[in-house]
Design a protein around this nucleic acid. Structure first.
Lengths: 105, 105
DNA sequence: CTATTTTTGGACAATAATTGTCAAAGCAAA
DNA sequence: TTTGCTTTGACAATTATTGTCCAAAAATAG
């Protein structure tokens, strides 16, 4: 297993922030958003916009694409959490991508 | 390859309807929705509610769970269509489900 | 302990997205 | 053309999301 994916997006960026000993206030200011909004993002109660993901990747010097994968996979996970066939739904969606790829070649 | 997943949800139910030689009007009436709404659903321009999926599965006598998988996988597919890392996002989401399963055991 | 700082949660209006509905227009067959 | 089917755009009503502020709770420092 390569990367930890057992933490939510919010938990992940909160850990980054805590590890760097920075208060919400500072990061929020950098991102030009309200402290409470960032608090909610860290608790997965609000969406993170493209801009915010961009900003976070800059602030913590992490790959933006990776962060986005984290964010979106998390979002989709929660979206399907209460569905009976979550995993199958994901697999079928993946098939659609693969079909698309095979076509476009 | 077991099932065709190269058609969208809309295309799928439209095909069902056409094959059964039924007009939108009739199905829409059965589902208690406007004809134009059903037309849009068939063109993937409107969401299908739980009720509608339920109704469609009844009308065409197909498994409701299957239809729902079709619908939701399609939705997620479109949601990620313009993302660079669509497939990886799906895989990470899947990992989250698997992690969840391993935990709950 | 008190004082200070950080974090949280609720409230709110503003904005955006979705829904249900209707009517007009397009299309195709007879 | 007339008829029936389908598509499209429009619209208000509803619902969801956003940005913002504030006060209270929680954590931390002194």
């Amino acid at each position: 297993m390569s990367k930890k994916n057992n933490t939510s997006f919010g938990e992940y960026i909160r850990k980054l922030r805590i590890d760097n000993k920075l208060p919400l206030r500072k990061i929020a200011a950098e991102l030009d958003i309200d402290t409470s909004t960032l608090s909610k993002i860290e608790k997965n109660e609000r969406n993170a916009s493209e801009q915010i993901i961009e900003g976070l990747s800059r602030i913590f010097d992490i790959d933006k694409a990776d962060l986005k994968v984290r964010y979106l996979s998390d979002k989709i996970f929660y979206q399907l959490l209460n569905e009976e066939d979550g995993i199958e739904i994901l697999k079928v969606a993946e098939q659609k991508f693969n079909y698309l790829k095979s076509k476009s070649k």
